[in-house]
Nucleic acid binder design. Sequence first.
DNA 1: CCTCAAAATATACAATGTAGAAACTAGTAG
DNA 2: CTACTAGTTTCTACATTGTATATTTTGAGG
Lengths: 116, 116
Amino acid sequence: MGKDGYLGEFEMKVMMALIRLGSNAYGMTIRRDISERTGRDVSIGAIYATLDRMERKGYVSSHKGEATPERGHRAKRYFKIEAPGKRIYADSWNALDNMREGLDDGLVTTFEPVGV
Amino acid sequence: MGKDGYLGEFEMKVMMALIRLGSNAYGMTIRRDISERTGRDVSIGAIYATLDRMERKGYVSSHKGEATPERGHRAKRYFKIEAPGKRIYADSWNALDNMREGLDDGLVTTFEPVGV
DNA sequence: CCTCAAAATATACAATGTAGAAACTAGTAG
DNA sequence: CTACTAGTTTCTACATTGTATATTTTGAGG
């Protein structure tokens, strides 16, 4: 099982954005998804640095957008999760969920929800 | 709202161990809880480094065990979460849960092609 | 004294988080 | 032709977290 370590907090968020966005996952949309859902802005540089590192490890792969970029813009670079990435992502959640099991979430939700 | 950032992956696990252990939370028990629940060993040094950093930030506090340590052993140092720690812990989970919302967890365990 | 075991402390370094600024790519205005 | 614009990626530097190993503390018992 996951002896390769765990994904970090931000890596997890990027992975979740990838899953949600599916075939429309590229730098800007990933960034937007994370900003909207967490209520906090993150720099585009942070997104790419994380994506690049995960690609080097084989957790995700990327490919440049087809021939015709909409209108003058730079070609998009689409990302998708690869098998090793899904594995470590699942392991990471399992570890977190196991730790969380049985904990009184009252402690958590007693405080105001983030964002909103 | 949590404008102070989020807890990292390991910090979250330590926090959860603290919540679970309550008044019996100290280095060795925290370590054991994390090992048992995640199935992976972590060094005691990693535990303390993290605890010390969180204490510096006011997320947790510690106090030395009472006068008589069981039998010749070094006095235990008990930890507990403080208000700022509860806040950032809650915020961290909220952000993660919000990101996770609606994601097909089947994808996580079973794995299924996304797009393309 | 010396050894033993539970526990904490010190320290160093690798990995991850994160921002800021530069560069790329065409349209369009002038 | 040149400049301006906007969406997008790339480069790069630095701060924060993750993590291990080695050392010290403590007191009982030989």
